[in-house]
């Protein structure tokens, strides 16, 4: 475990999420410290995205609490973002009919104050705030390499760039912690490499990162610490080496016969319950094989 003396940015204590009789996330504790990149892995249906939704206020956890820099967060998405936690979505959720720049400007929402009156009266304060927002947004687009596409509609971007734009939009709220939900899903090895660089760059800006991913190469390259979630419970937490060599993790992923192994039915149940609870709004866990990808990217 990385030894950090600073107080954690994120403290999740005993987060439990039940949908009726089904426990999707059970008593998960997790700390993320400043300047850290923490990975969250686990087989499909393990409850990773549900856990994310609990952290960001999209779900109200049945039990447990989430604190950002020591302050317990109310389970309201916009207040969580305001506090300093930003996220991306597993299935890209950009504002399709807005331009790239406008998408990032929406991300600035919590860091600007101009209301309706100021918009109608267009005083000097409004112009200053708009200019500052635009400058910051363009800075982030430079950072993610999308600056030359600022005026394009976001739905016209290629897939990889849409992912980048989601990250830029999340960064626009100047978060202390960034939650990435499968940022490399569907990417080719080169794009995955680029995303890796991007995440390092974000970390270097002083933003802690918590990332869900199935690409083991990506995770083990990137993360200072990895937590493994299986059937809603945290199985192991530790450095890449600890996790990679842990027999229970291997068993959970490869399904070595041991009694009470998580079967496909259970996983499907968790899935169904989760997607049912969000009213189809969040599609949990893409139907992809749990095994790590093995393509050689370099």
């Amino acid at each position: 475990m990385t030894t950090t003396t600073t107080s954690p940015v994120l403290t999740a204590t005993g987060v439990t999420m039940r949908f009726g009789g089904l426990t999707a996330v059970q008593a998960v504790d997790l700390d993320v410290h400043p300047g850290e990149i923490v990975g969250l892995i686990g087989p499909n249906g393990a409850g990773k995205t549900t856990f994310f939704n609990c952290l960001t206020g999209l779900y109200v956890p049945t039990e447990g609490s989430v604190a950002y820099r020591g302050t317990v967060l109310p389970p309201k998405p916009h207040l969580v973002t305001q506090a300093g936690i930003a996220r991306t979505f597993q299935n890209i959720r950009l504002f399709a009919n807005m331009t790239v720049l406008e998408n990032v400007l929406v991300g600035r929402h919590t860091r600007t104050k101009e209301g309706l009156w100021s918009a109608l009266l267009r005083g000097p304060g409004f112009k200053r705030a708009e200019t500052a927002s635009k400058a910051r947004a363009m800075e982030l687009l430079e950072f993610t390499g999308l600056a030359d596409k600022a005026d394009h509609l976001s739905r016209n971007l290629p897939y990889g760039e849409q992912r980048k734009l989601e990250i830029a939009r999340a960064l626009a709220s100047d978060p202390g912690l960034l939650l990435l939900d499968e940022p490399t899903a569907g990417m080719n090895p080169q794009e995955t490499r680029a995303t890796e660089e991007l995440v390092f760059a974000i970390r270097d800006l002083g933003t802690a990162v918590l990332v869900i991913e199935h690409d083991m190469r990506f995770i083990f390259n990137l993360c200072d610490r990895v937590a493994v979630l299986v059937q809603g419970q945290k199985l192991v937490e530790g450095t890449s080496e600890t996790v990679q060599s842990d027999e229970r993790v291997i068993a959970a992923y490869l399904g070595t016969p041991f009694e009470g192994a998580p079967g496909a039915e259970e996983a499907a149940e968790v899935e169904a319950a989760e997607s049912g609870a969000t009213g189809g709004a969040t599609q949990d866990e893409a139907q992809r094989g749990p095994t790590a990808r093995t393509e050689d990217g370099q």
């Binding site: 999209l58 998405p77 916009h78 973002t81 504002f95 807005m98 929406v106 991300g107 709220s173």
Partner: peptide
């Protein structure tokens, strides 16, 4: 922009604060 964002995707809009 917040109005349009809500129109486009309310969940994402609330997640943007």
């Amino acid at each position: 922009r917040a109005w349009v964002a809500i129109r486009e995707d309310e969940t994402a809009a609330t997640a943007m604060g």
